[in-house]
Amino acid sequence: MNYIASKRAKYLGKYSALTLVAMVFLFPVWLVFINSLKRDTEIYVNLFGLPKAFQFVNYADAWINGKFHMYYMNSIVITAASVGFILVFATLSAFALSRRDLIGKKLINVLFIIGITVPVQVSLMPLFVLVKDMGLYNSMIGVVLIFIAFRIAFATFIVTGFIEGIPVELEEAATIDGANSFSLFTRIILPLCKSSISAVAIFNLVFVWNNFWFPLIFLSSQSKKTLPVGLLSFMGEETTAFGKLFAGIMILTLPVMIVYLLLQKHFVQGVTAGAVKG
């Protein structure tokens, strides 16, 4: 009896402590959420409390006047294109690298490891000059190409590790039946590495969606800005319109939070696979 009681007390104590920590931990996110629903005048006097009247003025303001509807579209286009190509290229490369002893395979692997460790800032100046020379400055295509180039190494690495764990016998049997390399890829490999592909997809989705760095440097016109860049300029220009800024943060983070809550299993897989490989 005593033993059970003390165990229950321990359990209760542990989880109440954890709940408290979690509440403090999430407080900044909560703060942004409730204040995005208040008017600016209320934010100054009542930062912590719930809004007196829930209203979506800030959201409308950010969406229409703040041009967030435009940034939103740009973010979707750039993210979809980048992630789509990263997936196609990474799975194809991983298939080739894990199934054939190609000449230069070792070199390619080493070059990909470089791609995973080198800080982005190292190549920034030369990349900037290159992009300008190629006429790709202020072009969304240019930004997509850069995203692909910077993410392909890591993505290929993870999928390669996964494909190497798939037995070759299936493909050998299919080859005898007359399948060519492309149909081996589409009919056998792709269906079998779905889980690693979704982990890579979600990971890059979040990366590209959240990245402000490449769009900030390589896109100049207002009409091509992405959400994070739009939010950044909000932060610079409007030092008094906090409600609008908070609404902007919510517009930027809400889609990712929803995807995260729905597909968290794949996030965990992606983190673990990436770290163990790296």
Binding site: A90, L130, S181
Partner: peptide
């Protein structure tokens, strides 16, 4: 194997052009 090389062609081209080449340039510059 030619098919497999062709799978690597585009991704490697982008990787060389937009990643490795600028990094090498950084070193030289």
């Amino acid at each position: 194997n030619a098919a497999y090389y062709s799978f690597l062609l585009l991704p490697l081209t982008l990787y060389f052009l937009f990643f490795l080449y600028p990094n090498a340039s950084a070193l030289i510059w």
